Simulated assay, not measured.
Amino acid sequence: MSDHRLPHEKGFHISWDQIHRDSRALAWRLDGQGPDDGAWRAVVAITRGGMAPAMIVSRELDIRTVDTISVKSYHAGGGKADKQSDAEVLKSPDADLMGDGTGILIIDDLVDSGKTLELVRELYPNAHFATVYAKPKGRPMVDTFITEVSQDTWIFFPWDMALQYVEPYRGTD
């Protein structure tokens, strides 16, 4: 019997409460680990998924300098699950702020294959890369993470979901 599950059938559903708790846990793990007497100079969110965790980490660690880097590494699969393509930077953070990345926390929600972080790491080799969730293929690209999930798990983030009515499995009366 072969396994013909769709991505959502081995899903890991993350609520807003859970991403908040896990992002706070990430902040606690990063607290005091920066190169400047434990401090970090700035947080850079990888858009779009890294924005919510970066906001929480920057709040928890009282880091007021926050920027973004926008990297596109997925494209729509024409009705199928998204497929990865070559990563490209669409928007870079402030160059004077970044330098080689020393003292910078780069935050994303998830590392999957590692392509996105590999590209960003080439640009900022001394930055510290942190994600809330990590899959095995991408784990070598991350310095700090909270939860590892299997490579074939599809993570459903709260910003990708909507609440809606679902018909009961048996009958409607």
Rank of each mutant, 00 (worst) to 15 (best):
D31W: 03
D94I: 09
G79R: 15
E167F: 05
S150R: 04
L90R: 10
A39S: 02
D36A: 03
D36C: 00
I56P: 06
Q18Y: 02
V149C: 01
D62K: 15
A81N: 04
V66F: 15
F156V: 06
K135L: 05
V89W: 13
D109K: 04
E148H: 08
W28T: 04
D173V: 15
P7N: 13
H4G: 02
D31C: 07
F157D: 01
A134P: 10
E9V: 12
L97I: 09
I69T: 14
D37V: 01
D152Y: 02
P35R: 09
S15I: 10
V142C: 02
I14F: 00
P125D: 15
G34Q: 03
D109I: 03
A27D: 01
M51R: 06
D22C: 11
M161N: 12
A45E: 12
A130N: 06
M161R: 13
W28P: 00
I146Q: 10
G79D: 15
P140M: 12
A81V: 08
W28I: 00
Q84M: 09
M98R: 13
S92C: 04
L110G: 00
G99L: 05
Q18V: 04
T116S: 03
R139M: 14
R59I: 00
A127R: 03
W40A: 02
G38K: 07
T116V: 03
R5E: 09
L110A: 07
D108A: 01
G32E: 06
E9M: 15
E88H: 14
V66S: 13
I107F: 01
Q164C: 14
G32R: 05
D152E: 05
S23Y: 13
G78W: 15
R139G: 09
A95S: 03
W28K: 05
I19N: 03
K115P: 01
T102P: 00
W16R: 09
P35Q: 10
L123P: 00
G50Y: 11
E60Q: 07
M141Y: 03
V132E: 08
D109E: 06
M161Y: 05
H128R: 10
E88A: 14
D100V: 07
R64M: 15
D173H: 15
K80Q: 08
T116Y: 02
D22N: 10
